[in-house]
Design a protein around this nucleic acid. Structure first.
Length: 638
RNA sequence: GCCCUUGUAGCUCAGCUGGUAGAGCAAUUGAUUUGUAAUCAAUAGGUCCGCGGUUCGAAUCCGUGCGGGGGCACCA
């Protein structure tokens, strides 16, 4: 007798060993049809796995994550199968599932092209139609290694060597084709269905190491139904529509050009947005007791040597040589400059905590392949600040930085924040009792928020632990923006000190913090979060006055002039186009408020408001509009 | 940096196997005077990314450089 316990607590009895298929069959016909894989005492197994002892079993369908992942994993196998049928001599390596899909890495001299993908997809469909049964065999390790070597699959034999000693070496067969794999898999190639699509080819290093050979990676996605596949493709399309590079061009915010890859040419409107963010931040930091400073962009190499940047990050630094052959470095970070401001003049414990903020433009020579619109650039402006404090003040300062960050994110429409905490790495500077203090200060700051947080053990900087503030955007993507780091190293290196109560000199603790991180990057995120439809107060061009016809140009100009005086950004559109045309044009450019002026408005000294994405019309006295909207256009402050 | 891919008018793109460029939108001009998402017409607009090569002839083929895109690696 064999007892199988189901997730609902019910037990099934079998006379002898039993497979998942038999269990599913006994539960219901429909489950038999939908069953994909199962777990036996918590371990995922093929449905054909024979259970010999009393066990608890759960059967998964495509509605379960386990089922969906198995579909994707099988699709990856079938991809590899199709590739080897079409392109003999191609070596297979690994093919895991990833978010929304899978990939498979191949080694082959000739590159795969986009048209190959279509061929491969067809072949995959063929394999699905062949509905070849999947079987699993356990091989002797040495046999497996020599087998894969013999058939020219050197990567597979390498993988086997790395399988931990106690583990089985399992080989999966789909018909005649076979692959080393941990499994589990579906019972036959027909089970995956045809709701898959190969999406792209890309290079990828063997084992993720840039010293290794570069393989060819084929990405794909696979779903239980056509509907879900289509929905997924639709989501990708929607995400492309909010791409800040596309919107930035359309909305005339900025552009990039060859002369300075990775550096932004800000246009009038983009710069207006940039300045609004800065002015907002100035208000908030002023209220929070920060003093704004500014330090040179170019500093003598010797400072960077002293700070340690030259040694550690020199490869990413731009340098500049003067006609008299002095070497200066263009700052990749603001901290050394800020410490020098601290160092100027004598500081007392009474001056602490001293919070110095700086909108500092930094340059980092990022690898060319890393550049990506505003999100990864070589020249950017940090909303940086350095807080010099005593050890006892760390906690209080960390809490207040965290509160400020969360508050600012909220003002900008991000309510969903995750925190990441990284503590001491093995290689570090500073005494352990200060690390203790720094770490508990950061943890206390985190706990005070009651937000979700993750701990990255040993991931802190060599000079101190850190918090990273990650926000989720409108379509659920994570963006790491703010950061708070305790620095137990730099003040000492650069000789910072303050006079203690007892007259002795002491090295202050320094906190580095950035709220948005990079203004450029944050603007990119903002654009994507809002699909370009920025909130009124931050929108670079807030209103456009549109006369219904040329007859009302005079009134429209009058309205425009009055609006301009309030500080609302405004244009008047006197072009020879009809009203519909102008509404369409400015709506596409995401102008939040259009003001229509015709006979009715002239007669009553009003304007008609048309808000973006709404065709409701709201008529308002001009004076009332000016009062109401100039208040709304002010940057928020506490 | 590495792999693949790509670079044509202000923008979006067409231009098959080599015969010195084309559309829509935008711009300009004119007509129209419009009440809530594209009025009509005419005109003008191009070192086909740079450099080199093959060829009688190159936007097209080859090499190389630079830039963009998708990944990988990187991200203090």
């Amino acid at each position: 007798m064999l007892n199988i316990t189901l997730p609902d607590g019910n037990k099934l009895n079998f006379k002898q060993k039993v497979t998942g298929i038999q269990i599913a069959e006994k539960i219901s016909k429909s489950l038999l049809k939908e069953a994909l894989v199962m777990s036996v005492n918590g371990n995922l197994k093929d449905l054909t796995y024979e259970i010999e002892k009393d066990s608890s079993v759960k059967i998964f369908t495509s509605k379960d994550n386990e089922g969906l992942e198995t579909i994707r994993h099988d699709t990856a196998h079938i991809l590899a199968m199709a590739v080897q049928e079409l392109f003999p001599g191609t070596q297979v390596t690994i093919g895991p599932t990833i978010e929304n899909g899978f990939y498979y890495d191949f080694s082959r001299k000739e590159p795969f092209t986009e048209s190959d993908l279509i061929k491969i997809e067809k072949k995959m469909a063929e394999i699905v139609d062949r509905d070849e049964p999947t079987t699993r065999e356990v091989w002797d390790r040495e046999k497996a290694i020599s087998h894969f070597k013999k058939i020219g699959e050197k990567y597979k034999s390498e993988i086997i060597k790395d399988i931990p000693k106690g583990e089985e070496v399992s080989i999966y067969f789909h018909g005649k084709w076979h692959d080393l794999c941990r499994g589990p898999h579906l019972t036959s190639t027909g089970k995956i269905g045809k709701n898959f699509k190969l999406t792209k080819v890309a290079g990828a290093y063997w084992r993720g190491n840039s010293n290794n050979e570069m393989l060819q990676r084929i990405y794909g996605t696979s779903w239980p139904s056509k509907k879900e596949l289509d929905q997924h493709l639709k989501r990708i399309e929607e995400a492309e529509k909010r791409d800040h590079r596309k919107l930035g061009k359309e909305m005339d915010l900025f552009h990039f050009r060859e002369e300075s890859p990775g550096a932004v040419f800000w246009h009038e409107k983009g710069w207006n947005l940039f300045q609004k963010l800065i002015s907002y931040m100035r208000n908030r930091q002023d209220e929070a007791g920060y003093k704004e400073i500014n330090t040179p962009e170019i500093l003598d190499k010797s400072l960077w040597e002293k700070s340690g940047h030259w040694e550690k990050f020199g490869v990413n630094m731009y340098t500049s040589e003067t006609p008299d052959e002095k070497v200066f470095a263009i700052k990749p970070m603001n901290c050394p400059g800020c410490v020098q401001v601290f160092n100027q003049g004598l500081k007392s414990y009474r001056d602490l905590p001293l919070k110095m903020s700086e909108f500092g433009k930094v340059h980092r020579y990022e690898p060319s392949g890393a550049l990506h619109g505003l999100l990864r650039v070589r020249a950017f402006t940090q909303d940086d600040a350095h807080i010099f404090c005593t050890e006892d003040q760390i906690t209080q300062e960390c809490v207040s930085v965290t509160n400020l960050i969360l508050d600012i994110y909220k003002d900008l429409g991000f309510e969903n924040i995750i925190l990441k905490y990284s503590d001491r790495p093995d290689q570090r500077v500073g005494e352990d009792h200060i690390w203790d203090k720094a770490e508990s200060a950061l943890l206390e700051a985190i706990r005070s928020t009651k937000l979700e947080y993750s701990i990255n053990k040993g991931e802190g900087a060599f000079y101190g632990p850190k918090i990273e503030y990650v926000l989720k955007d409108a379509i659920g993507r994570d963006w790491q923006c703010g950061t708070l780091q305790v620095d137990l190293n730099l003040p000492q290196r650069l000789g910072a000190s303050y006079v203690e109560k007892d007259g002795s000199k002491k090295v202050p603790v320094m906190l580095h913090r950035a709220l948005f991180g990079s203004l450029e990057r944050f603007i990119g995120i903002l654009i994507e979060h809002y699909s370009g439809k920025l909130p009124f107060w931050i929108s670079p061009l807030q209103t456009i006055v549109i006369p219904v016809s040329n007859d009302f140009d005079g009134y429209a100009k009058e309205v425009y002039n009055k609006i301009k005086k309030t500080g609302i950004t405004c244009e008047v559109d006197l072009k020879n186009h009809n009203l519909n045309y102008k509404i369409r044009e400015h709506s596409l450019l995401k102008i939040p408020i259009l003001l229509i002026c015709g006979k009715k408005e002239v007669d009553s000294n009003t304007v008609t408001i048309r808000r973006l994405d709404s065709n409701k019309q709201e008529n308002m006295d001009l004076d009332k509009f000016l009062e109401k909207f100039s208040a709304l256009s002010k940057v928020p402050s506490k």
